[in-house]
Each structure stands twice: as C-alpha cells, then as structure tokens.
C-alpha cells in the first residue's frame, strides 16, 4: 500500500472509530441521550427530515443564499484583487486593513445591513459575502504576486498582448492560489450564512437548528447539524479533489 493510501485509510479509520466510540458511549449511557444523540439516530433523523417539505425548503433557502454570497465573493474578490495588484500604492494603503479584517466580528454590521437591504435574504447574502470576499481577494493578490516574472518575459518573447498574456500565462500560473481562494470563500460563505441564520433569520438551516435547540427537539437539531456538517465536508472534498487533479497535472501532488 502506498504512503498516500495509508494516510487516507488512517484518516477514515480514525473518523469511523470516533463515530463508533460516540455510538457506544451514547448507547451505554456514558453520554446522556438528552445531551447527545447516538450517531445512528442522527443519521435516521437526518434522512427523515430530508423527506419533509419544510426542511427541504430551508435547505434550498440556505444553499441559494450561500451560492449567491459565494458567487458574489469570488467575482468581487477576484476583480478587486486584480485591480489592487495593478495599483501598488492603493495596495500599500489597504494591506493593513486586509491583514486585520478577520479580527472584526462582521455580525455586528447586521443591523446596518437590515437597514440597508430590509428584512429579506439580502442581509444574509451580505454577511456571507463579507465573510468570503476578502479570502478571495487575498488569494488573488497572492496568486498574481507569485506569477514568475520569467513567464511574463516569455509572453513578451511570443509578442502576446495584454489580454492573451492574462488568459494564457497569468491566470494559469495563478490558478493554484485562486483555487485556494475559491475553497476558502465557499467555507467562509457557508459559515457566514449559517451563523447569520442562527441569530438573524426566520428561515434556513441555521434558523431551524436554533429553533430545534430552543424547543429541546434533539432529533431535529442533531439531524440538521449532521446534514450541515456533511454538506460542508462534501463540498470541501469535491473542491479538494478537483484541486488535487489540477496539482497532479502540475506534478505537485
């Protein structure tokens, strides 16, 4: 077995062991069922919940909010990152703000966002966007910084214009960093939206989990939590596998 395969097996075995241990602890009463449901019950609860129109509606609301926030964050982060890269003075001014951005709890802006956009999906999209866009912007700057100068000289040697240099040389060279930005943006958008729904919404998965918690409805709460967890892990795994294929092509994985 190769080293990589051993690592994958070890990862799966560790995760599975933890789940089995929790199942055992819950079943033997070591962990009270009122506090944590056994994983097998979480799974059956999740499957049952996903067959109800109400939960499916909440899933659709949350996923569409995340998708909007994510798409806007990637587009804006990439555009402003590119612009900022071309404006070194502006970048010097903004760099300290970017460096300290994630120390700001963006949820404090929710009242402002409601005042700006009204009580609808937009403040949540804005929260997801604010959480995700800087990650894409920083990754874009990093990616463009790391394009080897010699490749730009090769582009000049081939007499490529600005546009073709960007498409044929700069973008492919920056792609690994851009991909990191896309991955992070999705994760931050997901976190921003779900957390926003917890405290600020009257619908969506975050709201449903909070409502179930306040109603002592453990089955719904853990079923939805498991669904959120699996959705986040799955989307990240899909992007990681895409990234892995990209890196393998470059012989770096």
């Amino acid at each position: 077995m190769s080293r990589a395969a051993r690592i994958v097996w070890t990862r799966w075995a560790t995760g599975l062991s933890a789940v089995l241990l929790l199942e055992l602890a819950c079943r033997t009463g070591l962990v009270p069922k009122l506090a944590v449901l056994p994983p097998s019950e979480m799974i059956t609860a999740m499957i049952a919940l996903l067959q109800t129109d109400e939960v499916l509606g909440n899933v659709a609301q949350t996923f569409s909010t995340v998708a909007l926030a994510f798409a806007a964050a990637v587009a804006a982060g990439f555009t402003f990152g590119t612009l900022l890269h071309g404006l070194p003075r502006a970048r010097r001014a903004i760099d300290p703000l970017l460096a300290s951005y994630y120390s700001v709890p963006i949820f404090v802006f929710y009242p402002l966002l409601v005042a700006l956009f009204g009580l609808n999906i937009l403040p949540l999209v804005a929260i997801g966007f604010l959480a995700a866009a800087p990650a894409m912007l920083i990754a874009t700057l990093l990616g463009l910084d790391r394009v080897p100068h010699v490749l730009l000289r090769v582009a000049r040697m081939h007499r490529l214009g600005w546009g073709r240099t960007a498409i044929l040389v700069i973008l492919p060279a920056a792609l690994p960093n851009l991909f990191q930005g896309i991955k992070l943006s999705l994760a931050y958008a997901f976190i921003g939206v779900i957390a926003g729904e917890f405290i600020l919404s009257s619908g969506g998965l975050g709201y449903s989990i909070a409502f179930a918690y306040e109603s002592f409805d453990n089955r719904t709460m853990y079923g939805l939590m498991l669904f959120v967890l699996l959705s986040a892990v799955l989307s990240n795994a899909l992007l990681s596998s895409w990234e892995g294929r990209l890196q393998r092509r470059r012989g770096r994985a």
Binding site: V150, L151, V154, A173, L175, R252
Partner: peptide
C-alpha cells in the same frame, strides 16, 4: 518588442508547469 525571427531562452525555468 521582440522582433520576428528572434528567440530568447532565459536562465530561469521558463516552462509552463500547467
């Protein structure tokens, strides 16, 4: 610009990794 008929090989690795 680099004239037609002139080719340049650089010191650094200038192959496109992708």
């Amino acid at each position: 610009e680099v004239p037609d008929g002139v080719g340049v090989v650089f010191q650094e690795d200038a192959s496109f990794p992708w």
